[in-house]
Amino acid sequence: MATTDIIRIENLVKTYRMGDVDVHALNGVDLTIEKGSYVAIMGASGSGKSTMLNILGCLDRPTSGKYYLGGEDVSTMDDDALSAFRGRQLGFVFQSYNLIQQLTVIENIFVPLFYQGQDLSERNEHCGKLAKLVGLEDRLDHRPKQLSGGQQQRVAIARSLVNDPLLILADEPTGNLDSKTGIEILDLFDRLNAEGKTLVLVTHGDEVAERAQRVVRMRDGKIESDVRKRAPVRAGQESDIQTTA
């Protein structure tokens, strides 16, 4: 099983110092996520979900503890190495889409490859395919402003796939969308997971939790519960094993 673990976290601590007080945003978290998982991280506001996701996404470094991503110890990497790692191995989907306004749809999808020194003219076909996957093949030259929220989030999802990442991280991806569009986006995530993509979503909504293969609930910087509803995709069998942390 260890070889299919994409994420392994050991006794992770993140402490923010606010004046004289230490805020333990994460207070000793252990977690492993296997390839093909679809994990929903839930919990009350301030429970440490975003902090967790930022560390998983190599945007932030833990105060202490170990974090192995794809077998590499990322808790000790420097800024440049982390940047390169994000560009090569991770895909991000944000609540507020976070597209670059002056770029077109296809250019936005291409951005992660740009920072790997690739050329859009050589990857045009690849980026176009992803646009097609999210249903935006006839909007390639549009700018984000000309798209609806749902369409923008589809661009963001295509962008998160462009570098064929180990892991896609999404922080409340449906938070800014109406429920109908939100469902369309979640359907898209289902499809990605069915094709073997590993997803970690932070969410408030129960509809997300229903779709996820595994639900991790957080409270005060710790994992309160960790429910696996079925085995990860490609792991073989489907089961309803429940474990409590």
Binding site: D80, S83, R86, V111, Y115
Partner: peptide, 16 residues
């Protein structure tokens, strides 16, 4: 600032 954050998240190094 937001654009800079996006680019950093998507793999841009400080030098970029």
């Amino acid at each position: 600032t937001r654009e800079i954050g996006i680019r950093r998240a998507l793999g841009a190094k400080k030098q970029d």
